[in-house]
Amino acid sequence: MAGGGATGGSVQADTYREARTWLLLPAWLVLGILTLAPLTIMLVYSFLTKDFRGGVVWDFSLAAYDQFFFDRGLFGDDPPRIEWTYIGIFWRSIWQAGLATLLSLAVGFPTAYFIATRPERERALWVFLVTIPYWVNLLIRTVSMRFLLRNEGPLNDGLMAIGVISEPLAIVNTNLAVQLGLFYSYLPFMVLPIYAAVERYNFALSEAAADLYAPRWTVLRRILLPAVRPGIVAGCILVFVPSLGSFLAPDLLGGARNFMIGSLIEEQFKGNAGNWPFGAAASMILLTLVLILLMVLARQSRKGEA
C-alpha cells in the first residue's frame, strides 16, 4: 500500500499531456454533471428564498440556515434561541446510523471472514449469495421487513410457536426496527470491502503470531484487525453514510417518532408544502458533517498505515 507509487519521468508526462486531457474528458463530464452541478445547485438553493408552492425565489437569504439553528418564535420576531428540533433529528440520525453500522460490522465481519477463508472456488458462490437479496428493490425489501417484524409477522409467530415469548414483541415503529432495516439495507456494503481486505490478508501472518505465542484473540486483535482495517473503515463509511441520509427505513419501519434527516430533507421537496431552501440547507449541513467524518477517518487510517 504505502511506498512504491509512480515516479514517472517528466519526459513521458509531456508526451502524453495532450492525450491525457482528452482521455480524462469523460471522467470530468461524469463528475461535473452528476456530482458538481447538483451540489452547486443545492448550495445555491440553500441561500435562496422559498416560494410558497415549492421552488425558490431568486433572492439571497440566510433564512434556511437560520431556521435550522435558531428559533425566533411563531412570528419570527422573538429573540433567537437555539432550535433543538433539527439538531435533535440530526443527533438521532447519527445515533441510529451509528448503531446500524455497528450491527452491520458485528455481522458483516465474521461473514466476510468466513467467505474469505473458504476454498477459492466457493468464494464467488458465497459472495453471490450475499448479494441475492439486493436484486430486489430497496423499497420492496423495506416493506417486506415491516411484514416480517410486525406483531402478526413470521418472526413473532415463530418465536411464540417455539415458546420463547408469549406476547408478540413490538418491534415495528421502534428504533430497533429502523436499525434492523438499515442494517439489512446496507449489509453487503460492509461485507464486500472487508471480504476484499481479508482475502488479500496473508494468513502466514496469523501463523507467525501464533508461532510467537499469541493466543487466538490476540492474533485477531493485534495482527488481523490492523491488517484489514482499511476494509473495515471503508465498510463502515459505506454503511454509515447512506444510513445517515436514509428515509425509507425510518419512514416505513420507524413511524412518526423515529424521524431521521433523510425524511426531513425528503419532506421539504415533496408536494407543495415543502421548503426547498431549507431542504437544501439541511442537505449541505449533512454533507458537511459527513465530509468532516470522512476526513477524520482518512487521517486515522493513514496513521494506521504509516
Binding site: N202, E207, A208, A209, A210, D211, L212, P215, I223
Partner: peptide
C-alpha cells in the same frame, strides 16, 4: 498442543513480518 503453546519458533519462507 496449539502452535502458541509450543516452545519452537519458525522462520517463514516469505518472512511473514507484521507489516504494521
Amino acid at each position: 498442543l496449539p502452535p502458541h503453546k509450543r516452545p519452537v519458533n519458525t522462520v517463514f519462507q516469505n518472512y511473514a513480518l507484521f507489516p504494521h
